[in-house]
Computed example of a mutant assay.
Amino acid sequence: MDEAYKPPVMATANRLPRFVINYVQKNADIPDFPSPVLPSPKQYKLARKKLAHVFKAGGAVEGSYALQDAKKIIDPARDA
């Protein structure tokens, strides 16, 4: 290292580190960076179709709903 850089670098020696590396012992064997399994467009379409059937069976009609009215429709559909 060039001697011109040494004093400014040494002046920062008493500061807190900018980053810290920690090690955490895991209780379960899980991957650090899992690869997500993304649904295909066909699976999205089928899921939306199934949701539409569930809502229709619950008596929902197309339109805008206030929060409380929407919850009365969504909660039973969630449990179906």
Rank of each mutant, 00 (worst) to 15 (best):
P7Y: 06
M10R: 07
P31I: 02
Y23M: 13
E62K: 08
H53R: 07
L46D: 14
I21L: 14
G63P: 04
K56S: 13
D32E: 12
K26R: 14
V9K: 03
L38W: 00
H53W: 01
D69K: 15
D69I: 09
R48K: 10
A57R: 14
R48G: 05
P17T: 03
I21E: 12
D32M: 07
S35T: 13
V9H: 00
G58W: 06
Q25R: 14
P39T: 04
Y44V: 04
R18E: 14
P34K: 05
L51E: 11
A66D: 09
A57H: 09
Q43S: 08
P31K: 05
G58L: 06
P7A: 15
A47W: 01
R48E: 10
P41S: 06
H53K: 14
A66S: 00
N14S: 01
V54W: 00
M10S: 06
L46R: 09
P34H: 09
V24Q: 04
F55T: 02
R18W: 09
P8A: 06
M10I: 08
F19E: 10
K42A: 13
H53Y: 11
S40T: 11
T12W: 00
D29K: 11
Y44T: 07
S64T: 13
K6M: 10
K49I: 01
P36C: 06
D32S: 10
F55W: 11
T12V: 05
A28E: 15
K26G: 05
A28Q: 15
D69M: 07
L16K: 02
F19M: 10
V54K: 02
L67D: 02
D69G: 14
P41K: 04
P7C: 09
V61T: 08
I21H: 07
V61F: 10
P39R: 01
N22W: 06
V20T: 04
P41D: 01
V37T: 15
T12Q: 12
L38G: 00
F55V: 01
K26E: 10
P41Q: 01
L51F: 11
F55C: 04
K56D: 13
D69A: 12
Y23A: 12
V9E: 05
K50C: 03
K6Q: 08
P7S: 06
A11P: 03
P41H: 08
K26A: 11
A60P: 04
P34S: 11
K56T: 03
L51M: 10
R18N: 09
M10G: 00
K42S: 12
I21N: 14
A47D: 04
V37L: 01
P8L: 08
I21G: 09
D29N: 13
M10K: 12
D29R: 15
V37I: 13
R48T: 06
K42C: 05
R15A: 07
K42P: 04
K56N: 10
K6T: 15
V9Y: 03
G59E: 00
D29A: 02
A47H: 03
P39W: 04
K56H: 14
G63Q: 00
S35H: 07
A13P: 03
G63A: 08
K26W: 09
D29C: 14
G59C: 02
Y44I: 02
F55G: 04
A60Q: 11
P39I: 00
P34G: 08
K42M: 01
V20N: 08
K26H: 00
